[in-house]
């Protein structure tokens, strides 16, 4: 892995980081434009705020300034000071605090879902590919379909009822060790929302892995390895898997960011104190700072993960050189 420490590698990463900032800026600008195009503003309430009171509020939040000034102020605050500003809904909380306090919960179920989803998905995909058109293959396919055919919010209700409510009310299991329908703070609370979230990942992973494994199994190098007498296990593990994993790795980045960015419905149903609801509320409330803050935060996360994926890709695939 000499190329890792090469000049080309550093230059590559440096360039990508500069591009990352530019990308974020473009994303923020586009968001700003769209955000301001939505009718109403953060102070639009069911009960109209009287004009005098409204004037005071606009002055306080700087909403009375020309829109371009507001844009410059927000960009300057965000990119130079790293401050996303204050929420208009939960008025005493800065967006930075909101992220610091609630992102970990979204991340916890997201990481859990990613681990379960990837492990199960890859496993199922490999098995399905090795025993193509067998019963196992069909069962894996059926699981996939269930995983994606029914929207995850619906699955969340089903999972909550059959795994957390029914056993407690009808089977009288010990509530101290079993899953709670709603709750947070113990490891068991991660499992149900994480599992629900992982179904989509399992589906995606299984399908891609199966497809890639099948493709690779007909490749010349696999045939060569077999011809040279390598055991099936060795061929699968060393040749097929490694090559089949390549395109799957490029999927991991987006999947990871998708998983940790919080699901409105799943978090709401299981009482996970994550960022999912904040994101949705910010859009329906025209909460400019929260919407902008979360978009840039997740955007940044995504871009970094993408960069890491690309680097990893280079590590796994010796044919790619940086520079």
């Amino acid at each position: 892995m000499q190329h890792l420490l090469s000049w080309g590698f550093f230059r590559y990463v440096g360039q990508r980081l500069i591009m990352a900032v530019l990308t974020l800026w473009a994303l923020a600008t586009l968001t700003f434009v769209f955000m301001r195009a939505v009718p109403g503003d953060p102070l639009t309430r069911t009960k109209e705020i009287p004009a005098t009171v409204r004037a005071n509020l606009e002055e306080k939040y700087g909403l009375n300034k020309p829109i371009f000034d507001q844009y410059l102020i927000q960009m300057q605050r965000m990119f130079i000071q790293g401050d996303f500003g204050e929420s208009f809904r939960t008025v005493d909380r800065s967006v930075n605090r909101m992220i610091a306090e609630n992102f970990p919960a979204s991340a916890a179920i997201g990481i859990f879902a990613l681990i379960v989803g990837t492990t199960v998905g890859l496993g199922l995909g490999i098995v399905a590919a090795l025993y193509r058109n067998s019963l196992i293959d069909r069962i894996a396919m059926l699981l996939c379909v269930i995983g994606i055919a029914i929207p995850s919010a619906l699955i969340a209700y089903v999972v909550q009822y059959f795994l957390a409510v029914f056993p407690l009310t009808h089977l009288h299991v010990n509530p101290h060790v079993w899953f709670r329908p709603v709750g947070w703070g113990q490891f068991r609370d991660v499992i149900l929302p994480g599992f629900t979230l992982s179904l989509g990942i399992i589906t995606l992973m299984t399908r891609y892995m199966r497809s890639q494994m099948v493709d690779v199994s007909f490749a010349e190098f696999v045939r060569t390895a077999r011809a040279k007498g390598a055991s099936t296990a060795r061929v699968v593990a060393l040749h097929q898997l490694r090559n089949a994993m390549l395109p799957v790795v490029s999927l991991l980045g987006p999947i990871f960011v998708g998983a940790i960015s919080g699901s409105l419905l799943i978090e709401n149903i299981f009482g996970v104190p994550g960022l999912g609801a904040a994101y949705f509320n910010s859009i329906s409330n025209n909460d400019y700072n929260v919407l902008m803050g979360l978009t840039v935060f997740y955007g940044g996360f995504f871009i970094i993960i993408n960069l890491i994926t690309d680097v990893l890709y280079g590590l796994i695939d010796p044919r790619i050189r940086f520079g």
């Binding site: 407690l168 509530p175 709670r180 009482g271």
Partner: peptide, 19 residues
């Protein structure tokens, strides 16, 4: 308030299981 859950079905489930 051990959780801040808006979903009324989830809250009712939590009530029924003694949460």
């Amino acid at each position: 308030s051990p959780a801040m859950v808006k979903d009324s079905q989830a809250n009712f489930n939590n009530f029924q299981t003694g949460g």
